[in-house]
Design a protein around this nucleic acid. Structure first.
Lengths: 222, 222
DNA sequence: AAAGCGAATGACAAAATTGTCACATTAGCA
DNA sequence: TGCTAATGTGACAATTTTGTCATTCGCTTT
């Protein structure tokens, strides 16, 4: 069930919407002001945020920026058509805009549309407890980010794109280094394997991810 | 029309296969030995390589490794079932194996299958003359590789994932730096924009890719 | 035209990456 | 078992990345 965060200081409206959206199969949480909303985005990790631009505490733009930074889609609620034109003109990165007053059905249809559009963007590769967001170029173990250097990332990607295959040392050296026309020591690969293991493996002394295939090369275990 | 490179020293077989594969809509080039094959992979950039393991000059494994390094799929031809078990056991990274003697129709069906499988892997983002292979984490202008540092790559990816949107400085700082909990100077972003422009723009004095939106932030022009 | 502001730039130091040693360890084999 | 070749390790120098100045540049508004 998708979780929606409603950022709105009119508590009567919050209650009405929460009720209605529940019947439509959404789970709602709410925040009355900018600081609460920012905290809630981090803590609740909602699938989508509905933001009223005109908040008593802070303003909706900052909430929008924060949500976008976390990859959470945003729909703006505006009090009037005038406000709406300002917002769309500035294009703060919201995924949609809807002007009050709106029909609840319309809101639901907009929500579904944004979720459909944004949920398709999962360009992720998962292997055991490791996760690579190829869209952003980030690597995680669980929800802990792992920082790989540019070359480490490229080497790891090559392994991921050839999961299970035994890759020869020559193949790996070619892929990561030879493409630039440089020739590096054979040991350089060994060292990079060590560095990858230190960052990626549970226990780098006992590698279960990148296995050595003696006399041939290495293999990323599925 | 797909181009196939046949690495085989039995010239009678080469001729027969070339004829047959032409009628099936493939363009064939051939190489008789390992050195010629390696050169042909670089020069001809075939869509697929057929390799006979038992060559008079050199061996098929090296050809396979070179092709895989260039991202070109490989089908091995083996003289006997025994050889085949050796090859599959070692898993040199070939995309398929076929034992002689084989029916031409079978070969064609295997070729089509491999091409279908491998051509689907294009996780590429293209913008003007720039191309990002998100699967490998590489950036090109034309066929010239551009080396981005890890942070530059992340920043560029964020722009690419939000093409056309005006992104505020705060949003960008959050996305690239705040996720690690660090706080960096506002000017750091400016400097990174400059560095990205130097690497990505035709003329960094006159940016057409990453535009400044005065008072707000930046925008990646579609 | 001058002032004021945000953005761009060049230069810089600290930190990280990168490639290579020399040496240690290990696996496979005689 | 002990030998040998292959792989792993810690340390290192060179280079690149990274973040921050101080300063300059160029719009906008007086």
């Amino acid at each position: 069930m998708e979780k929606l965060l409603m950022v709105e200081d009119d508590s009567a409206l919050v209650q009405r919407l929460t009720e209605y959206l529940s019947t439509e199969g959404f789970h709602c949480v709410s925040a009355g002001g900018q600081p609460q909303a920012v905290a809630a985005i981090d803590a609740e990790r909602p699938d989508l945020v509905l933001v009223d631009i005109t908040l008593a505490e802070g303003n909706g733009f900052a909430v929008c920026a924060h949500a976008r930074g976390k990859g959470v889609p945003v729909i703006f609620l505006t009090a009037s058509g005038d406000e709406l034109s300002t917002v769309t003109g500035l294009d703060m990165g919201a995924d949609d805009y809807i002007a009050k007053p709106f029909r609840p059905k319309e809101l639901v249809s907009r929500i579904r549309s944004v979720l459909r559009r944004t949920s398709g963007n999962h360009s992720e590769i998962v292997l055991r407890e490791l996760r690579v967001d190829t869209g952003k170029g980030l690597v995680f173990r669980g929800d802990q980010q792992i920082f790989l250097s540019a070359l480490e990332y490229r080497l790891f990607m090559f392994f991921l794109n050839h999961r299970g295959q035994i890759l020869t040392r020559e193949q790996l050296l070619d892929e990561i280094w030879d493409s630039a026309g440089e020739y590096v020591s054979d040991n350089t690969l060994t060292v990079y394997i060590k560095r990858l293991r230190e960052k990626l493996e549970e226990d780098s002394q006992d590698p279960r991810l990148i296995l050595t295939v003696r006399g041939i090369g290495y293999q990323l275990k599925e």
